[in-house]
Amino acid sequence: MNALQVKNLSVAYEEKVVLKNVNLAIPVGRLTGIIGPNGAGKSTLIKAILNQLPNKSGAVHILERPLNSKDHTVGYVPQRNAVDWDFPTNALDVVLMGRYGHIGMIKKPSTKDKQIAMDCLKNVGMETFADRSIGQLSGGQQQRVFLARALAQEAEVYFMDEPFVGVDAATERTIIAILKDLKAKGKSVFVVHHDLQTASDYFDWMILLNQTITASGPTELTFTEDNLQEAYGGKLFFMDQAKSNKTFN
């Protein structure tokens, strides 16, 4: 079964084409990195898959079905800087928002929902910060709260937009451990990532993107110099370093 299938997806903002004719088929249970240079359309791809853009064409299937938010199959971690962290609320409350889809409109969170939220917070090592105002958390802690909120969605397929940006080393390790744990539980995870040095260690599947798909497949087949040069259009400086890092591992 495919976790994600995309057919002829194109997105344009006004006159400018951002994604052109994207086709993807990715099996269930993979930890997939979405890699590409700035402006390649990585975040746009996620937003288009999640049906957040009006001006798109093409078809998207998740677990072989068209996306329906009532199925609760999809968990989502938006970019951290997309929200105002001075909003008056605490960490547990934000994680609880991950339960809203399950709770449904009008109804209030139950004790069980609160318990799940607390467990997810514990999962990311943030249980002692449950009552802390989100504005007082560090960037890495805020990112963990966002990850915990996605875990609270109890989804099958997860989409994460740049979860490693601006976080400390400890948070990066926590996040990658959780991603690998999700994969071990048979979930499918898609992560927008731009650090080529760590990419091949983190992901077992890769989508190389630059407005159109350069390559998609298992990491050992797709993460090649030729493919990367094509995606990055010859602007690639890190390749040798990434390779030498690999020999150390």
Partner: peptide, 22 residues
């Protein structure tokens, strides 16, 4: 009373709110 959590979420994080179908 009816839409407290909905208005709160769509105010704090509209992108996420949209993704869960609010």
């Amino acid at each position: 009373v009816f839409f407290y959590k909905e208005i709160k979420l769509s105010t704090f994080d509209p992108v996420f709110a949209l993704s869960i179908g609010l």
